[in-house]
Computed example of a mutant assay.
Amino acid sequence: MPVPRPLPRVVAIGAAIGVAIGGIALAATAAAFGWRAFRARQAENSAILNETLPIHSKWWRDHAKQRGELLYVAIGDSAAQGIGASRPDHSYVGVLADDIRERTGRSLRVVNLSVSGATVGLAVRDQLPRFEKLKPDIVTVAIGANDIADWDASAFARGIRTVFDAVPKHAIVAELPCFYFPRNERRVAEANRILHAAAAERGLVVVPLHEATRRQGVRGILTDFANDWFHPNDRGYRVWAGVFRPAVVQRLRALRVLRPE
């Protein structure tokens, strides 16, 4: 078993969920169990999930070697890796992959380029060089939530435009998710405005992840996240997959690979 290491500065939508839990749910839990006990339990759960980082990464690398009639490539962070899910393929990438196989009856190769803790700048550095060697049929991009903690609008804009320039016109892009607290939501709103503008300039489809996660509200905070209070659980990742699904189905329709209804 890997030796636990500190979690990356912000992993996947860690800042989003951490902020949410910093509100009503966190206050209630801390009040019920005591702040020190709560923080100790949170640290313990984070350490447990931290051990899954290399496990998930290896799982995706191994599965990328499988052949398939169709190729699905994901650019992203630990949400794409599925940290917090019961198993790697229960991430939104895995859920979408299973959906594609069922809807088409075709074999599918999945190349998950995501890296836990990735910002748009790190995606440009680490994921795009690998992406340019591929010719995917389906592409999803969900990146940028890790930029919110040390927000730099200019750097985000440069990075997201570089990512969008590298992906094909049929790539499906997700908004940043809801961060709940006003200060962070202001940053997210600015990031999503930049993201929408850059996508529109390039004719890319953007799916409404922010609205979908915002609608989950307090109920979602209590039911859709893993024990570290940072990452989605299986239920939460199904919400993410549901946001992508209509655009993915539209892409499959354009490829003429959907099974007859």
Rank of each mutant, 00 (worst) to 15 (best):
D234K: 02
L204N: 04
E190I: 10
A85T: 10
R130W: 05
A43F: 07
A200W: 01
R253Y: 03
V141R: 00
V11P: 01
R161F: 10
H56T: 05
A37G: 13
D137S: 12
H56G: 02
N146I: 03
A197P: 04
A25L: 12
L26V: 12
L258M: 01
R259C: 00
A15H: 12
F38P: 03
A171I: 12
D98W: 02
W151F: 15
W59V: 03
L108W: 05
R125I: 05
I148W: 12
E175V: 14
Y72H: 07
V3C: 02
V141P: 00
L222H: 04
D152T: 09
K65F: 01
A157S: 15
F38I: 08
G84I: 06
A79R: 06
V111K: 10
R130D: 02
L49G: 02
H56F: 15
A241K: 00
G236C: 08
R41H: 13
W229H: 15
G105H: 07
L258S: 01
G121R: 14
R256L: 01
L7Y: 04
E44C: 11
E69K: 12
F225R: 00
K135T: 12
L204G: 06
V11M: 11
V11L: 09
P260G: 05
A155W: 04
H90Q: 12
P129Q: 06
A28P: 01
L113C: 01
N227L: 13
T104I: 05
L96W: 07
R130M: 09
P129H: 11
G34C: 09
A247C: 07
